[in-house]
Nucleic acid binder design. Structure first.
Lengths: 220, 220
DNA sequence: CAACCGACTAAACAGTGTCAAGATACCATG
DNA sequence: CATGGTATCTTGACACTGTTTAGTCGGTTG
């Protein structure tokens, strides 16, 4: 509500906002709230501007179009995602298998705790894949996984990935990614299947699944 | 273009169509073509009626609203999907591991050969989950997988699924489902990662990944 | 033949994203 | 301190979307 207007006499070069405090920031927050409540498909730029109390054309100058705004949201999602994976990796210490397990746990946990972000991140077509340093943020999250895989397969940092390592990586990634999607799609909690909510999925189903994470060094 | 009008004097009870040959059928075909070309998000009911040459309100009487039409498309997708999995399962013969491998292959192949269908099927919110016998069709596809898992884990048909069996099932499902999603999202074919198109994914990356399908009976 | 009914059209409505003009508030400069 | 200049935002409009309402047509049936 209150627009901040104080503290204008610091440095002359700081780009201070306008009517609205900091509209771009506010728009991103509101956009995230909207997809949190209405889902990625339920997103509406007009709903965002309505909540932010500005005109429908206001976001244009900052983000271009709706895709631009969603790209910013996705970028932040990838940053937070990469952070979560890196933290989990560190939690795994020096044991490659533990690092991968922790990453898998964190992967699914992130997806279930921030479903809107996660679903947007993997819904190309809703945002611009090349937006600002989104490619870097996305690639960084990927690298966290690849590094742990390299350690598990005994590959140095510079060495090229072998076919085996790539297969191992893709299988690991696929398990956690697939589990996240299935859980978010309520596929795992149908009446005929196991029941329970998100907590049950995370605490019971996920560990049962992660027992079957690929193990390195097993030929044929 | 040509509406079929011949052969009207068969049986008096057959519900014969109207202006348009068979509009419901035509709408489903066109709808599938639209999502094939424009993606699930690019779907537009008005584009469908435009191509079918009817008014925007025409689908209402047959399918209610747009969700209804997409539900029918999804239903057919699940039927074809279940058929493909069952055929692959049969191809696996009596070896449980082979049955699961073939199913995994078929799962991803279906996703890459019919991306529009597949993506719609797993995009709840775009269609009605309880539409007609869609639940049955979806559950049937699931059962094909569960049956093979039961065989692999040595469980009889009536026996309840154990935690181990469920974990094994979810892990298997997650790998192929995740791989399909990653492949469709172009995540596996980024410049930094492995290159190549769909064929390369199916022929090179997928086998590398399926090597790491969960193996039954491995405790801890 | 008349009445009926399912299938479709025509027209309209509210909602969407985006664009072209214009107004406004801040900024640096004279 | 006044004065442009410019980034920021508003207003109004446009084309598009899905859905509803009322009406019309086609074919069958009593």
């Amino acid at each position: 509500m209150n627009t901040v207007k104080i503290k204008a006499a610091r440095k002359p070069r700081v780009r201070r906002p306008y009517h609205h405090g900091d509209l771009p920031e506010r728009l991103v927050e509101v956009a995230e709230a909207v997809i949190r409540e209405r889902g990625v498909d339920g997103f509406s730029l007009r709903e965002v501007v309505r909540r932010a109390g500005v005109s429908p054309a206001a976001p244009a100058h900052h983000f271009g179009d709706a895709r631009g705004l969603l790209s910013e949201v996705a970028l932040r999602g990838f940053r937070a995602f990469g952070d979560a994976l890196a933290a989990a990796d560190a939690r795994g210490g020096t044991d490659p298998e533990k690092r991968l397990y922790e990453q898998g746990l964190a992967y699914v946990t992130f997806a279930l705790k921030h479903p809107a972000r996660f679903q947007l991140m993997f819904r190309h077509g809703k945002y611009d894949i090349g937006y600002k340093d989104l490619p870097a943020a996305s690639e960084r999250a990927y690298q966290v996984l690849e590094d742990a895989v390299r350690a598990a397969m005994g590959l140095a940092a510079g060495e090229p990935m072998t076919d085996d390592a790539n297969g191992f990586l893709m299988a690991t990634w696929s398990v956690v990614h697939g589990f996240a999607h299935l859980a978010l799609g309520e596929e795992l909690t149908r009446p005929a299947r196991a029941r329970g909510g998100k907590d049950q999925v995370l605490q019971a189903l996920l560990p049962l699944t992660l027992k079957h994470l690929p193990r390195p060094k097993r030929p044929r």
